[in-house]
């Protein structure tokens, strides 16, 4: 077949366009990162490190301790995952292994829609519905506490966990299922003892991606956690207000003077958050990579 020059030109144009778009995406990421560094790094010079990694965040008094914020984020993220993991894996197992075909056809798009709910809507839902329930059930003075935030975050990370875990279950070869069944294992035994363990690295990836999703969430968390920048220590920390890194940046960025110490400190929080998220994603990617290299499983 001979190609006309028109076709070749068209192809060249499309190819260049795609290349430009591809590179510019990478470019934007780098620009954002550099910007973050430029605005955030001065904080590490201006604020002494004892203060920056201290336990008290009172910017008006020059106290910029990020620890309560980091721990606040960690507390609700981890709690959210502890709630979402069993639910997510169980749902994935149900959708993939148990549900009849027609139910699967309905459930999958519904789970995807779940991922599309704007977080401000979930925040509103959390404030008006979940918070009163938490307050009454646990007898806390307010419902706007870490636990409420964790519930909302769990809900938000569920779609990610479900769909990634489901893919992982789907990738388990039929050979393994057959082996389990042929040994006289019941369907449930085959699922819990063969299929789920064989998919464990994929499930781990699901958890980490869900975590990445949860830790970066801002709006819903700001609306339901009460935003008190106190150290979330002690047994009742879950039922006290907390403040996360993201909520701090979002709430305070609007009122700081450009170039002030407080301004740089907020960007420093951004750097910390970026590094944490980056590490989580890196861990997720490396388990995925390891799985691929091993030829499909584990």
């Amino acid at each position: 077949m001979r190609q006309t020059p028109r076709v070749r030109w068209g192809e060249f144009a499309i190819e260049s366009l795609i290349r430009v778009i591809g590179f510019s995406t990478v470019g934007f990421v780098i620009i954002i990162f550099l910007f973050l560094l430029r605005e955030g790094l001065p904080a590490f010079a201006q604020i002494n490190l004892d203060n920056l990694f201290g336990t008290r965040w009172y910017p008006t008094f020059g106290l910029f301790g990020t620890l309560p914020l980091v721990l606040g984020s960690a507390l609700i993220t981890i709690t959210a995952i502890v709630i979402a993991l069993p639910l997510g894996v169980a749902t994935a197992v149900f959708v993939r292994e148990v549900a009849p075909n027609w139910a699967r056809e309905i459930l999958k798009p519904m789970i995807e829609v779940l991922a599309g709910i704007p977080s401000v809507v979930l925040g509103f839902f959390g404030m008006t519905l979940v918070a009163p329930i938490v307050r009454e059930t646990f007898g806390a003075p307010t419902g706007l506490v870490a636990f409420t935030g964790a519930l909302i975050l769990a809900y938000m990370s569920l779609p990610t966990i479900i769909s990634v875990a489901e893919d992982a279950l789907d990738a388990v070869p039929k050979l393994y299922r057959d082996a389990g069944l042929a040994m006289g294992a019941t369907q449930w035994q085959t699922i819990w003892r063969v299929v789920v363990p064989a998919a464990r690295s994929g499930i781990l990836t699901a958890v980490m991606l869900g975590m990445g999703r949860a830790i970066g969430e801002t709006m819903a968390v700001m609306m339901v956690t009460g935003n008190a920048a106190r150290m979330p220590l002690g047994l009742d920390a879950l039922f006290r207000p907390v403040r996360t890194m993201t909520a701090t940046i979002a709430a305070e960025m609007g009122e700081v003077a450009h170039g002030s110490v407080h301004y740089h400190a907020l960007f420093a929080i951004g750097i910390i958050l970026f590094v944490i998220t980056f590490l989580i994603n890196l861990a997720a990617a490396s388990t995925m990579f390891r799985k691929r290299r091993r030829g499909g499983l584990r």
Binding site: A182, M183, G184, V194, P197
Partner: peptide, 27 residues
């Protein structure tokens, strides 16, 4: 399930579970 315990099967392609030797036999 009971039947398959009485009538075991070995497949064409070896298909041990992705687990230890011990866990495979102990399954």
């Amino acid at each position: 399930v009971e039947l398959r315990r009485r009538v075991g099967m070995v497949f064409q392609r070896p298909n041990p579970f992705p687990a230890s030797v011990f866990d495979n036999v102990a399954f």
